[in-house]
Simulated scan of single mutants.
Amino acid sequence: MKPMLLVKRVLPACALALGLLFAGQQAAHAEDDGQLMASGSSIRDQASLQRGARLFFNYCVGCHSLKYVRYSRMADDLGLTEQQVMQNLNFTGAKFDEQVVSHMPADDAGKWFGKAPPDLSLEVSAKGSDWVYTYLNTFYLDPKSPIGWNNTTLPNAAMPFPLWELQGEQTAVTKPGSGEVEKLELAHPGKLTPEQYQQATRDLVNFLEYVSEPAALQRQHYGIWVLLFLVAFTMLAYLLKKEYWKDVH
């Protein structure tokens, strides 16, 4: 079989296989997690990553670590200087080249919340950006809960709602007779409008998506140049093939 004919036949088949695999993963997430809100996150949006980092270090790092990320690496990827990171994002006294580790004692956390808060380095990789985004938007007041909050995405979650002052307080509207949560209503508005809060949680999820695989930023940057090289190489190879085979009948 001629090389170009082989490429024309193999590439569409590979693309179809990858498409089916990706569709299958999406279907699995939809089946496991139910209807999720679309996060719309994009790690190419550096401004969003910076806003998400600010939210994480102001509201989350007190309990949650990012043990697979260093402050120095984060500064390089997010376009921040060492001074900006150390003054605005480092509240634990860590050094610039150290990992992001919460100072909450695990034993105390277990007493307060029932278990130590998990490290969030791989949270988006494990559950998907849409799941985390939906989770952050579906907290509601629950007087029956020991912590006063509950969540429709993860019922009986042990985590208190750290962003309540931004979103406000939601209450659950249940279906008559079943007690199942039908929808959530904003009973007491927070500092942000619903649209602003959704953007804030989108920024936070975007940052956590970056954290789950920091190399993805570099890979996307180099990927464009690799594709251009492959296109140029393919054209040269095709011209070379024509030159070699021009006298073959």
Results as ranks from 00 to 15, higher is better:
Thr201Ala: 09
Ala237Thr: 06
Ser121Arg: 04
Gln46Ser: 08
Leu66His: 08
Phe161Gln: 12
Glu195Trp: 00
Leu5Glu: 15
Ser72Val: 04
Asp32Met: 10
Pro189His: 05
Pro12Val: 05
Leu20Thr: 10
Gly148Trp: 05
Phe139Glu: 01
Arg219Lys: 12
Leu163Met: 14
Leu240Asn: 05
Glu195Ser: 14
Ser102Val: 04
Ala200Phe: 03
Gln198Glu: 14
Val231Leu: 15
Gly79Asp: 02
Ala23Gly: 13
His103Val: 03
Asn90Phe: 01
Arg73Pro: 00
Leu240Asp: 05
Asp203Val: 06
Tyr244His: 12
Ser72Arg: 12
Ala47Lys: 11
Leu18Lys: 02
Phe113Met: 11
Ala94Tyr: 02
Pro12Cys: 07
Glu31Gly: 03
Leu21Ile: 01
Asp32Pro: 00
Thr171Cys: 06
Ala47Asn: 12
Lys242Trp: 10
Ala30Thr: 06
Met104His: 07
Arg70Gln: 14
Thr201Leu: 02
Gly34Tyr: 02
Ala28Leu: 15
Ser102Gln: 11
Leu141Ile: 05
Val101Asn: 05
Val226Pro: 00
Phe207Tyr: 15
His188Met: 05
Phe113Ser: 05
Gln220Thr: 01
His64Ile: 01
Gly40Gln: 07
Pro162Tyr: 11
Pro146Thr: 07
Pro117Ser: 06
Asp119Phe: 06
Gln198Tyr: 01
Lys127Asn: 09
Val181Met: 07
Leu49Phe: 04
Ala15Met: 14
Ala232Cys: 11
Arg9Glu: 11
Asn58Met: 06
Trp112Ala: 15
Cys63Met: 02
Phe57Pro: 00
Ala106Ile: 11
Ala28Thr: 07
Gly168Ile: 06
Ala232Ile: 12
Arg54Leu: 12
Gly19Ala: 05
Glu209Trp: 10
Val100Asp: 03
Gly52Thr: 03
Val7Gly: 05
Ser125Gln: 13
Gly52Phe: 02
Lys191Ile: 07
Thr92Ser: 15
Phe57Gly: 01
Gln35Glu: 13
Ser72Ala: 15
Phe91Lys: 12
Gln196Cys: 03
Gln199Asp: 14
Ala28Phe: 10
Pro12Glu: 05
Leu6Gly: 07
Leu186Val: 04
His249Leu: 14
Leu192Asp: 13
Thr234Met: 10
Ala53Pro: 02
Glu195Arg: 10
Met37His: 05
Gly24Ser: 14
Glu98Cys: 04
Leu16Ser: 07
Asn58Tyr: 02
Pro118Met: 08
Asn156Lys: 12
Asp107Trp: 08
Gln50Ile: 12
Pro194Thr: 08
Pro162Trp: 13
Asn206Cys: 15
Asp108Ser: 14
Phe207Glu: 07
Pro176Val: 06
Ile43Ala: 00
